[in-house]
């Protein structure tokens, strides 16, 4: 068994596999399929200061090698999370990480401050890249000033590991990454979904209720991989790679490109037990290549 452990800020992951927010519920939904403690980290559904109903149905469109969604951050708000969900997940012996979103800097900071009080939540992933909400979300994540301002506000009140989730819907993702690094982010994760669209030609209408949505799945993997590679070269903080990872080979590609850890998202819908299979597959690869630890392959790409 190779050493799969990874450090991201103050976070110790037993392996580099995490779950992407919005694809794994609160972990409990998958407890019948995998031993949750075998996953390096579980990033739970996006949480906002106030409850959100999300966008109307239909919210999903299947695409070639992927899917579009426009869920729109449906969640019951941070108070409900703290009172009703946290007690159910706090004793799961892995890193339970909360994805935090908002529509203003003040919302982000207040939500993060509330999560900061929870002993068993060692990190947050700051979502400045949701493409499916009118205010906030991706609006902050597409400019260096916007991204920096949210991270600055949150960093003042959030004392634990701060991961910032970046949008691919930008011209220069490395510049955004540098701007959040400068404001004290402990890590960046990328990519969130790519904005896309699907059309019903019989009705001559968009398939999704708000016309556009975020594309995920294997269709986006080459784009995600390229961006992770660019960002890993641009920043000193760890990079968490995600976007279309379906198996261990995909995950290893991201590690080689410079990601210290990876997140699995849409693949959970196809195989609810994929997370532990990917962790095992990374171990098998390391053993086959005579590596003692996963750190030996992070950024080991030869160009």
């Amino acid at each position: 068994m190779a050493d799969l452990s990874v450090k991201i800020g103050d976070l110790h992951l037993k392996n580099p596999v995490m779950t992407a927010s919005g694809t794994f519920g609160y972990g409990l939904e998958f407890a019948d399929f995998v031993n949750l403690e075998d996953i390096g980290g579980i990033i739970v559904k996006g949480t906002t200061l106030n409850p959100r109903e999300g966008n109307p149905y239909p919210r999903m469109a299947e695409t070639a090698q992927g899917m579009l969604n426009c869920v729109g951050l449906q969640n019951k708000g941070v108070d409900y999370f703290c009172e009703h969900i946290y007690p159910q997940i706090k004793d799961i012996r892995t890193n339970m990480i909360v994805n935090v979103s908002g529509s203003s800097r003040e919302d982000y900071a207040e939500c993060a401050a509330r999560i900061n009080e929870l002993d068993k939540i060692p990190a947050i992933e700051l979502n400045i890249s949701c493409p499916n909400v009118k205010q906030g979300g991706m609006a902050f994540g597409v400019t260096t000033d916007g991204a920096a301002s949210v991270v600055k506000a949150v960093r003042e009140v959030y004392k634990k590991t701060l991961i910032v989730k970046l949008s691919p819907n930008v011209t220069d993702v490395a510049a955004i990454a540098r701007s959040v690094e400068a404001e004290g982010a402990d890590a960046v994760s990328l990519i969130n979904t790519l904005m896309g669209m699907a059309i019903d030609i019989e009705k001559r209408r968009p398939v999704l209720s708000i016309a556009t949505g975020g594309l995920s799945g294997p269709a986006v993997k080459p784009v995600a991989l390229r961006m992770v590679w660019q960002v890993a070269k641009a920043v000193k903080i760890p990079v968490v790679g995600l976007g279309g990872i379906m198996n261990a080979q995909d995950a290893i590609e991201f590690l080689l490109a410079g990601a210290s850890a990876i997140e699995i998202g849409t693949a959970n819908f196809i195989d609810p037990a994929v997370t532990v299979k990917v962790a095992q597959g990374i171990n098998d690869y390391l053993e086959r290549h005579g590596c003692k630890s996963v750190s030996e392959i992070v950024g080991a790409l030869e160009v």
Partner: peptide, 20 residues
């Protein structure tokens, strides 16, 4: 229309008297 089938992705919501 659903994706995950286990209540994780929130794609298949129906609007009810308790919300989505």
């Amino acid at each position: 229309m659903m994706a995950c089938g286990v209540g994780a992705c929130l794609c298949c919501v129906e609007n009810t008297n308790e919300g989505h």
